[in-house]
């Protein structure tokens, strides 16, 4: 017994090293479903505060750019308002009901990265503002990501530039759909996969969300096709899609929740129960 104790004392550094290293590896492995280690991410109160302060300084230096962007968006909105007033008002209301009605919460990006393998966003809205996990995030240009964890005042999100997540997307003209994922290199390019070989994909063809997942309504802009690849003997082809969202300069986003989502989920649950 004493020898054993002596042994441990003699090699305490080695043991401590192994224990700490195993602990870290456990964190890494559990990271795949790391809802369990909630306190260890940047939506926690302390790191959230630090990022928010730093962001408010950074914001000050990009005021001009933000202003220009807002002015542009204003102009666009005014334009679409006019065309809406011009068209039949009754019809546009019906359209809203018939398609997905969407509730939006605006939020500010307080931390963001594009050059890691798994990129995450931190937003300054949390459960207090009605944010829940698995809500979709869009910005004025297009799709951004999906909420992962929520605390009272902050939330973290998977960005599209994260190899651990893929969203269902489709070609706007032909409605052929497939999973969209990031290959981990260029922050402007993603890959749309599993498009059947017979489908002709035009250059510059627009790619939008399919509306199959309950996170995003149908037709949210994602980007446009820049390159198509078909490997010999493969029945599917791949399309490289240039993202319409510039993740390097992301600042204001909208967290959306489809109002009819709950109903859709309930209905789909009936299928799996049978």
């Amino acid at each position: 017994m004493r020898n054993l104790l002596n042994f441990f004392i003699k090699y305490h550094v080695l043991f401590l090293f192994l224990v700490l290293e195993l602990l870290s590896l456990t964190f890494i492995i559990r990271y795949n479903n790391f809802h369990q280690v909630k306190f260890l991410n940047s939506s926690n109160q302390i790191s959230g505060k630090v990022y928010e302060k730093a962001q408010s300084v950074r914001e000050y230096f990009t005021l001009r750019k933000t202003n220009e962007k807002l002015a542009l968006e204003n102009a666009l909105l005014r334009q679409s308002l006019q065309s809406m007033l011009a068209s039949d008002i009754q019809r546009s209301v019906e359209l809203n009901v018939g398609e997905n009605r969407v509730k939006a919460i605006s939020a500010k990006v307080i931390n963001n990265s594009v050059n890691k393998q798994y990129n995450y966003l931190t937003l300054n809205r949390g459960s207090r503002h009605g944010v829940k996990p698995e809500m979709g995030i869009i910005c004025s240009d297009g799709i951004v990501g999906v909420i992962l964890n929520v605390t009272e005042n902050y939330s973290t999100a998977l960005s599209v530039l994260n190899g651990r997540w893929s969203v269902n997307a489709k070609l706007k003209s032909s409605n052929h759909f497939g999973p969209l994922r990031w290959e981990g290199k260029n922050p402007y390019l993603v890959i749309l996969e599993e498009i059947p070989y017979h489908v002709k994909i035009a250059d510059n063809e627009e790619v939008v969300t399919s509306g199959f997942s309950s996170m995003f309504p149908d037709g949210v802009s994602i980007g446009h096709v820049v390159k198509v690849e078909h490997r010999e003997g493969d029945s599917f082809q791949k399309a490289w899609v240039q993202l319409s969202t510039d993740f390097k300069s992301l600042m204001y986003v909208e967290i959306i929740e489809s109002v009819s989502k709950r109903e859709q989920l309930q209905l789909e649950k009936l299928n799996s129960d049978e």
Binding site: V13, F17, L20, E21, L23, S24, L25, T26, F27, I28, I29, R30, Y31, F34, V37, L40, N41, S42, N44, I46, S47, V50, Y51, N111, S113, K116, Y118, Y120, T156
Partner: peptide, 20 residues
Amino acid sequence: IDVFTNTPGIHASATVFVAF
């Protein structure tokens, strides 16, 4: 560092390794 970058364990394992 991991808490700030949402990468539980990745930086910790590397720093423990070099500390050893």
